[in-house]
């Protein structure tokens, strides 16, 4: 590729702050598998069930954990985030998507939604898509979980 020899070779971007949220247990399992790979500073966060009686759509009550089980704070995580990705396999986490979205919108950070359809019926997947649609500026339905690391790599997460 002789032409490429004349391109200036230098890094043209800084490290992004990517925050990847697993909204449910299945999604968390997928993220757990890939989180140990070398990433460019991406934070993998699992949404834990809201405490009884707490409004799941309120970010103040959102319970998050890092892959090692340590707690995380959504406001702190999203303060400097460039990329926010919500990953979901079922619809039980609709409220938490809204809670994260409110904080991201306040910070003017775009959200990508990823519905994992592997092993799911079309009906369930459609419900997942519908639950993410209000918050995502791009929404992807992936038939296989391998797409998650492919997408994160592409986005330099």
């Amino acid at each position: 590729m002789a032409e490429a020899q004349f391109r200036v070779d230098y890094p043209n971007s800084k490290t992004r702050s990517s925050r990847i949220f697993a909204l449910d247990k299945k999604a968390a399992q997928v993220l757990q598998q890939i989180s140990e790979a070398p990433w460019n500073g991406a934070h993998f966060l699992t949404v834990l069930p809201a405490k009884d009686g707490k409004d799941a759509t309120d970010a103040a009550y959102l319970r998050l954990s890092h892959p090692d089980g340590s707690p995380a704070d959504v406001f702190e995580e999203l303060r400097h985030a460039d990329v926010v990705i919500l990953i979901s396999c079922d619809t039980r986490a609709t409220g938490t998507a809204e809670a994260i979205a409110k904080v991201a919108f306040a910070n003017k950070t775009m959200i990508a939604g990823l519905a994992l359809a592997e092993g799911k019926s079309e009906g369930v997947t459609n419900e997942v898509v519908a639950s993410l649609r209000p918050y995502a500026s791009v929404l992807v339905v992936a038939q296989d979980n391998d797409f998650v690391p492919a997408m994160l790599t592409a986005l330099r997460a």
């Binding site: 990508a112 791009v138 992807v140 797409f147 492919a150 986005l155």
Partner: peptide, 19 residues
């Protein structure tokens, strides 16, 4: 040279096609 590109979320159609 796609090692130098900086895709964003709205490029997910391209990302999925490559995948």
């Amino acid at each position: 040279d796609r090692t130098k590109e900086n895709l964003v979320s709205t490029d997910n159609g391209i990302i999925m096609a490559r995948h």
